[in-house]
Structure formats: structure tokens, C-alpha cells
Write a protein that binds this DNA or RNA. Structure first.
Lengths: 221, 221
DNA sequence: GAGTAACTCCCTATAAATGGGGAGCTGAAT
DNA sequence: ATTCAGCTCCCCATTTATAGGGAGTTACTC
């Protein structure tokens, strides 16, 4: 019998983790030996030497630290990882960004079930694995638009947001306008304006709607 | 041996459906005999007479028709249902709205795994079932703020959006401004203004950020 | 003690969004 | 044949957001 493959699962929805565990149980070569509910837990788990997983299944949108940041930190900490990204956002740019960060597999949540076992086995051998729909999108992107090589990544390189900026961002997503936010935080309108300007610059979006979308996608709200 | 409980699962993420099926498989009294990936499919399934499920497990946020609308339609069509709502939004107001629409159980996705079997058995007997965190929130809401009885529901009673309104809504979430939307749709700026006004009125939010938040929460984007 | 980051506020000016109304046209349904 | 919903566009007026800049305070680090 061949060596067991140990898997760590990270997703902020426990039901999804449990589902994956249940699916993986059907294959006796694979075993889930750890899971995390947010990015910080992943890093903590992997930084403990006694813990070891052959494959990391990683959701992108998680609270505290998101999947993108997790990969960056793992790389920075020189922690070897074979990561499968599990995502509801099938934006090609994000796929490419994750690939640059060293993930080996990318599966859309829409059809993860049929792919997850094969994906784990493939990446544990060091191979790449993408679910059908991701493959289609990647091919379309490459063939169709010949992917503008240089200008993808920095959309995701967000400067750290300060406490105040985060508070303002949260209130923006709750549909408050500048005056109301100023009232709620007991600061001046100009100050809120400044924070919004900082947010727009840092997150690189065009307007408050963009801020809100960023907040949702990154579980800040 | 007692009679088997048949379950229909509705969620737009197939992996979640598969996870639930895998979990339910561990109990031999329960069997999943159908699933849907959106609200329209649920209604279609239940309106066919040969199909029958004792329990419907229903996600709130689904494309085409969301969980709230599904319950309304089931009620309108006089289709008997024992529904467990499965949700990531633990807003008490939504829980109460769903209860008014006749759902028997309400489980947060965060701890669905440990609850789902018991919840199915409970509601199949006609009992109510809520996961711990939902119970806590309901109690807190009732005891703490003595729930303003009358003013909850209509936040969720959304008039049907037209094709054009949906297109505009989608473009708003993509950070386009009125002029750019007008260009993209080859219509006048005033027209886009009209659609935005209609959207604000129908969805009952204060600004475009509110529209964007509604759109993500309802998987319109 | 100089530097820096975060927090705070201000000015000016333009662009955009919001709120209220009205109104014509079309195609499908009763 | 009329009604009605959806699509389209317009008017007016006001509020808000966006964009560019500057600048003072604290608090913490090197």
C-alpha cells in the first residue's frame, strides 16, 4: 500500500470543511489531519514543526488573513507547500495571481466534489491540477486576449489598512454617507473624506461601490 | 425499521451539496433524493408530483430565485414543505422573516455539520430546530431589544427587477459610473439614472453601495 | 531628537449621484 | 381595443462623492 497523503483544509465555513472531509473519507489513500477556519490559523498550524500536511486546500476568502496573504506568508516563511486553491471567484486574474504565488491546483467550488480527490493526488505528486471550468477560462484568456503579462498582480497587493480606515470602510458598506460616518465616529467630515480617499487609493478601486465589493470579497464586513 | 426520511438539498455551490450528502450518508434513516443549484430548480422539482421530499434544505443566497422567494412561491403554490434554512447570514431579521415564511429549522453554515442530522429528524417530525448560535441570537434579540414586531419584513420583499435593471445593477457593482453604463448599454444617461432610481426604490437601499451589497448577497453578480 | 505612521482637519473645484416629477413608445395580454 | 409593464428619455434641484493639494497633532521607533 502506498503512503498516505495528509491534507489540511482551510475554509471559513465549517460545513464546507466537513463536506470535504466526508468526500475525502471515501478514498483510503488520503486523510485530513488538520483544518483551519481562517488564514491566521493556517499559518499558525503550518509553523508548528510537528504538524505536517502534504496538501493544503485553501479558500481565498477568509477572515483575518485571506488565502492570498496565506500563500505570501508561506512563501516568505520558506514553508514548502502544495496548495490547491478552492474558490468561488473564478476571475482569471485571481487564478493567475495564485499561480504566481505557487499554488499547484485551482478548483472552482461549483464542481469541487468531482475533482477534489484527483486534484489532491495530482498535486501531491507535484503535478498541476485545474478543474474543467478553470481550464476553459485560462485557455480563453490566454488564447483570446493574449494576457497582458505585466499588469495583473498589483490589484491584489493592497497596502495595509489602518484601524480608522477599516471602520470607515465598514460603515461605507452599511450605506452610510460621509456625514453620517463622521457623526458615528465623532470626527469631522473632512477626516472621513480623507479616509475614503486613502481607501480608494490603497484598494485601487474607482468608487465606494468598489470599496464595498472589496470588503465583501475579503470578508471585512 | 422506521420509515426513511427523504431530503432535497438546494444550494448554488455543488461542493456544499455534496458535502451534505456525504454527511447524511452516515445516517441510514435519511436519504437525499434530489438537489437543486438554484431557486428555480427547487420550484420546478417540487411542482412535479412524482417528486416528494420530507425535508427541504434551503440556502438563502442562490441565483435566479433566492431562498426567500422559494419559500414564498412554495407557500403560494400550497406546496407543503418542511424547510431547514441553511445560511451564512445570521441576521436575526432574516431568521425571523424566514420563520414567518414557514421554515421550521434554521442552521448557520458555520456549524451545520454537527446539527444537520438532528435538524432533519426534528423537522421531519414537525418540530422546530435551530443551531446554537442562531438560538443565542434569537434570544438576545427578543430579550434585549424586545424585537420591534411590525417593522421587519418589507426589507426583504423586493419587487421583481427587470432585465435592464439587472444589467445596470451588475455594471454598478463593477464600479462603472452612470456615463460609462450608458455607453456600455447604448442608452442615454437619463435612462441609466432612471434605472438606478428604480433599483434604489425597489431594493429599498440608500445608495449604490447598498445596491452592490444587495447584489452580492443575492449572487446577482 | 529626527523620522515616521496614524489620526485629524482644512481649502478648492469638479464630477457624480440622488430625488421628484413627467412622458412617449412598444409589444404582449385581456 | 384598451390596459399595462417595460424601455426609453427629459426637466429641475440638491446633495454627495471624488480629486488634488496642504498641514498640525500624537506616539512610537531608531
Amino acid at each position: 500500500m502506498r503512503k498516505k497523503i495528509y491534507v489540511h483544509v482551510a475554509d471559513d465555513h465549517k460545513i464546507l470543511i466537513e463536506g470535504i472531509i466526508a468526500i475525502i473519507k471515501t478514498d483510503k489513500d488520503i486523510e485530513v489531519n488538520g483544518f483551519s477556519l481562517n488564514g491566521a490559523e493556517v499559518l499558525e498550524w503550518f509553523s508548528k514543526k510537528k504538524n505536517k500536511a502534504d496538501v493544503l486546500i485553501l479558500d481565498i476568502t477568509m477572515p483575518v488573513i485571506d488565502g492570498i496573504e496565506v500563500l505570501k506568508h508561506l512563501n516568505k516563511l520558506k514553508i514548502d507547500h502544495k496548495t490547491i486553491v478552492l474558490s468561488s471567484y473564478d476571475d482569471v486574474k485571481i487564478v493567475e495571481e495564485m499561480l504566481k504565488l505557487g499554488c499547484l491546483g485551482y478548483i472552482s467550488k461549483n464542481n469541487a466534489g468531482e475533482h477534489i480527490i484527483n486534484a489532491i493526488k495530482a498535486v501531491s505528486r507535484g503535478e498541476q491540477y485545474f478543474s474543467d471550468d478553470i481550464q476553459r477560462k485560462l485557455i480563453k484568456s490566454i488564447s483570446g486576449q493574449s494576457v497582458p503579462e505585466g499588469n495583473l498582480p498589483n490589484k491584489f497587493v493592497i497596502e495595509q489598512l489602518t484601524d480608522r480606515e477599516l471602520k470607515v470602510l465598514k460603515l461605507i458598506t452599511e450605506e452610510y454617507n460621509t456625514t453620517q460616518i463622521a457623526d458615528k465616529l465623532n470626527i469631522g467630515i473632512s477626516t472621513v473624506d480623507t479616509y475614503r480617499k486613502n481607501l480608494l487609493r490603497k484598494i485601487k478601486v474607482k468608487n465606494s461601490v468598489g470599496l464595498a465589493m472589496y470588503a465583501v470579497k475579503n470578508n471585512i464586513v
